[in-house]
Every structure is written in C-alpha cells, then in structure tokens.
Design a protein around this nucleic acid. Structure first.
Lengths: 169, 169
DNA sequence: GCTCAACAGATGAATGCTCAACTACATTGG
DNA sequence: CCAATGTAGTTGAGCATTCATCTGTTGAGC
C-alpha cells in the first residue's frame, strides 16, 4: 500500500530550486566571511548575539537556543572562539553548573571589522535581487515556517536521547 | 568613510528569519534522512540525479554541476557511495581523464526505499505549512535568486585559484 | 610535432558538526 | 534529608566539506 503523497511537478520544481538557492546564497555568504574575516557564519552569529546582550554576556544555554540550537555545537564553537581570544568563559553566579560567555574587546573589534563586508555580501547576494514585494513575501514565508516548525518540537534541540531508554518501561 | 549600506530593521528581520527557517527546515530533512536511511541529503541527491540519468550513469563533472558544485566534494562522496555499493565508478570512453558514476541496482533499491519517507518529510516540513500562494511566491523568489546568482560567477564553482597566479601578468 | 595552459579527478590535511556518553549540579518527591 | 530524575555543559569519536595540491589528459598556438 503506497499512500505516499508524492510531490507533483510544481512542488518538485519548488523544492529543488529551494535547495539550490539556499546553497548558492549560503555558500556565498559563508565564503565571503571565511575569506575576509576568517570565521564561519555560525561563529559570526555567536559574536553578534553576544554583542547585543547586556554586558556582552549570555548564558550558554540562552546563546544556544538563540539561533544556534545544539548545545554541543556551541560548546565546541565557544572553545574555538576562546582560543582565538574573541570570547571568554565565566562561571554563572546563580547556578553553579551554568557557564557564561562574554565577548572580549578583541572579539568586539573583530566583529566590527567583519560587519561591513558581511552586510554588503548579504545585500549583494540576497536583497539586491529581490523586489520589495518579494522581500515582504519572503519574510512572511520564513516567519510562517519558523512559527510552524519551532512550535512542533519532534526533535527540537532535544539531542539527548535520554527518553529513549525509559520510554518503554 | 563608512559607506556601508546597513540593513534596516525590516531587512534584519528578514535575514535572520531566513537563516533560522533554513536551519529548521534543512535540519529536519537531514535528520529524517540520516535516521531512516543512513545517508545525508547530499548523498541522496546524488542517487536521485543518477537515477534520472540515461543508463543510470553520469559524468562526474556533470553530476557535480547538477546541484552539487564542488568537484572535491563529489569525489569524496562518490568514494563513500562506492564503498557502500550504491554507486560504481567506470572509465569514460571518449575522454580518458573523465570518469563515469553509475547507480548500481542496490543503490537504486536503497533510493526507492528512502524516497517515501523523504518526500513525506519534505511535505510535512515545508509544503504543509505554506498556502498555495506562498508556495508560488517561494518558487518565484528562489528561481529569481538562482537566476541572479548562477549567472554571476564571482566564485561559481571555480574552486581552483589557478587564475589568481596569472591574473596580474 | 611540441610546448604550455586548461581541464577532469583524486587525495590529504584541517575544520566544523553530530551523536553518544559523561560529569557535575539542581530539584523534586517521599 | 535522601534518592531519583532532570538540567547545564563538556568531551571525544566519526563523518562531511573545504582548501590546496597533485597527477594525468586534452587541446590550442607556434
């Protein structure tokens, strides 16, 4: 019994174009950032989030849920950023198992140096090619998706399969 | 002189939502495929392309430019797919430096087994949340981007910096 | 015909990400 | 107050991708 709801021709085309466009856009952004500032987009985003936080400091878990998801990824990333001297780790005063990440002045300087080139490439890659109507439509679409997908966990950021072991008891 | 064309509030919001939505969508698709079929999306796409080719065979470079870009990536990927037995490498009869990739019957079977779950997850992740109008708008937007970005090489798939050494002669 | 640049692929090191443990602390229920 | 469970974060192995480099082949110009 094959009750698969296959994609029709239009959907196929949309899906493949979606994948291709994403790759084209993100590859460019990522490449520009890597070449000009020596950091991947994910690290840039971490610095941005920290720069916007009060005291340039954020709890690890907060930072993880803000656009980054996986805790493991953040740990590795912050470890590298700390080596580079852009970020410093501090103990959380209220919760002794917590950790705070703080943007250093050097990190702030690097971020400020990277920002213009990055913004320019975002503009040149994405916005310059879309009409105001398309930009509005794009925003509506992606916000719809975020609403739909972040409220339906299914596998939210729950990377720990701790549940799997006890679920059938 | 700071002539950076910064993003205004609307653009900021669109860009961040774009990044978030992409991550949400692709993470789900990728996770479903990895869990249920043990392969990343990139490999699945290679199998799809081969399955659609005459004789289930495609030249490596053709396969690379079809949705995959980087030649190096394809080499590594096909090496893994060959280990798994989904793909076989053959010599190109007309060009002795070329190589052909051929989908094996086992690879075809694996692809057919993986397809329903993948399609279902694409539907559940993307299409089910978008109105027909949004789907049409999305397609128009991503096709616009593809048109704009693939015609402007800048760094198309030209990963080889051979030009850099002679450009200034 | 030879030379030299372009092309097709492969390869290895380095990097970032995922997954599955694991440690340490906190919190809840009895 | 103590056990059990949940939470915060780290760590290391495995894998995919990237970059730079390298080999071998083709093709164009002299």
């Amino acid at each position: 019994m094959d009750h698969t709801r296959w994609l029709d021709a239009d959907e196929q085309r949309t899906w493949r174009a979606f994948l291709t466009a994403n790759r084209l856009v993100l590859d460019r952004i990522e490449r520009q950032l890597s070449q000009d500032s020596g950091m991947p987009l994910a690290y840039y985003e971490i610095l941005v989030r920290l720069s916007e936080a009060p005291g340039h400091t954020l709890r690890m878990s907060t930072l993880a849920s803000t656009a980054l998801s996986s805790r493991s990824r953040l740990s590795h990333a912050v470890a590298r950023l700390e080596e580079a001297g852009w970020v410093r780790r501090r103990a959380c005063p209220t919760d002794r198992r917590g950790a705070l990440a703080e943007l250093t002045p050097e990190g702030m300087a690097v971020l400020e140096a990277a920002a213009p080139g990055h913004v320019e490439s975002v503009r040149a890659t994405l916005f310059d090619h879309l009409s105001p109507g398309q930009q509005a439509a794009l925003r509506e679409i992606v916000e719809t998706l975020i609403g739909a997908l972040s409220e339906t966990p299914e596998w939210p950021a729950a990377q720990d399969a701790t549940c799997a072991t006890d679920a059938r008891r």
